[in-house]
């Protein structure tokens, strides 16, 4: 059986909200290391995935691997019944056809129980090669949300040009054109300066509009703004976003979710006709 106790319902709510418009239904793969998920949208353009590590839960038990077929619209409805600061217990028996949720108020004065029916889903897992990207951009997630919103006012796609000087996002459309250039800011790249203490991947020191750029090769990539805007629904889960890109391959957009895991999207690029 699976039994996982999560201290903040808001994490689960946020993850489901940031995936449900891209994926209708998918398997949650549960093992003793945690809960993970991977699924493409119907047009096979974007892949959404997340990982919640067992260590990130207050208690976690999974006796054998389970694949739980979940419809996101159902899950979203159930999770709307939980308050953000509720404790959530997720429970599934082996070979069960339902997934159980218990929501406990922090002061333990209210306990709600819900269940959703599970689905049989033919899981098609894509094998994504482990790859080094030529460019890794890290910026505040709220700034990334604003950038995608702003670009969408003008165009349907955005071109990301990453070079030594910085990274430029540009778009054009019927009413005109626009671009935003972020220069590499060292304020979020001080891990090598010997200041120490800060954990890797922390957002410490990042200014609201700062952007750190690690570059091996210049990268130029055109991407659909419709999908990028969908990805920004994960922004409330994380202070920053990491965009990893190489020329002519899908971009990876990752939001770290506290210490528990991450939500990660892949988006196929626009290619020349």
């Amino acid at each position: 059986m699976l039994e996982a106790r999560l201290l903040q319902a808001s994490i689960l709510k946020g993850i489901v909200e940031s995936v449900k418009d891209l994926v209708r239904e998918a398997n949650f793969d549960c093992s003793d290391s945690g809960i993970s998920f991977q699924a493409m949208d119907e047009s096979n353009v974007a892949l959404s995935s997340f990982l919640l590590r067992a260590e990130g839960f207050e208690t976690y038990r999974c006796d054998r691997n389970l694949s739980l077929g979940v419809r996101f619209s159902s899950l979203s409805k159930i999770l709307k019944c939980a308050n953000n600061d509720d404790i959530v217990v997720i429970r599934a028996e082996d070979d069960a056809d339902v997934l159980n949720f218990v929501f406990e108020s922090p002061d333990e004065s209210k306990i709600s129980e819900y269940q959703i029916k599970l689905l049989d889903i033919d899981g098609e897992h894509l094998s994504i090669p482990e790859q080094e990207f030529d460019c890794v951009i890290k910026m505040s997630s709220s700034e990334f949300s604003k950038l995608c919103r702003d670009m969408t006012l003008l165009g349907q796609t955005v071109v990301i040009d990453a070079a030594k000087e910085g990274v430029k996002f540009s778009t054009y459309g019927d009413i005109g054109a626009g671009s935003v250039l972020y220069k590499h800011s060292s304020s979020i790249d001080d891990s090598s300066s010997g200041s120490g203490g800060k954990g890797r991947g922390g957002s410490g020191g990042m200014s609201a509009r700062g952007c750190s750029i690690e570059l091996r090769e210049p990268v130029s990539l055109e991407l659909s703004l419709k999908y990028l805007n969908n990805f920004t629904k994960a922004a409330p889960l994380s202070d920053y976003v990491v965009i990893s890109a190489s020329n002519e391959i899908p971009v990876m957009v990752q939001f770290d979710v506290g210490d528990i895991g991450y939500i990660r999207y892949y988006l196929a690029p626009q290619i020349k006709d």
């Binding site: 493409m40 047009s43 096979n44 353009v45 974007a46 892949l47 098609e124 897992h125 894509l126 094998s127 994504i128 090669p129 796609t157 055109e222 659909s224 391959i249 899908p250 892949y266 196929a268 690029p269 626009q270 290619i271 020349k272 006709d273």
Partner: peptide, 14 residues
């Protein structure tokens, strides 16, 4: 002019 590619052309199904 560009067009949208799909992930299938980059990632394989095992």
């Amino acid at each position: 002019k560009t067009q949208q590619s799909t992930l299938m052309s980059f990632f394989g199904t095992p």
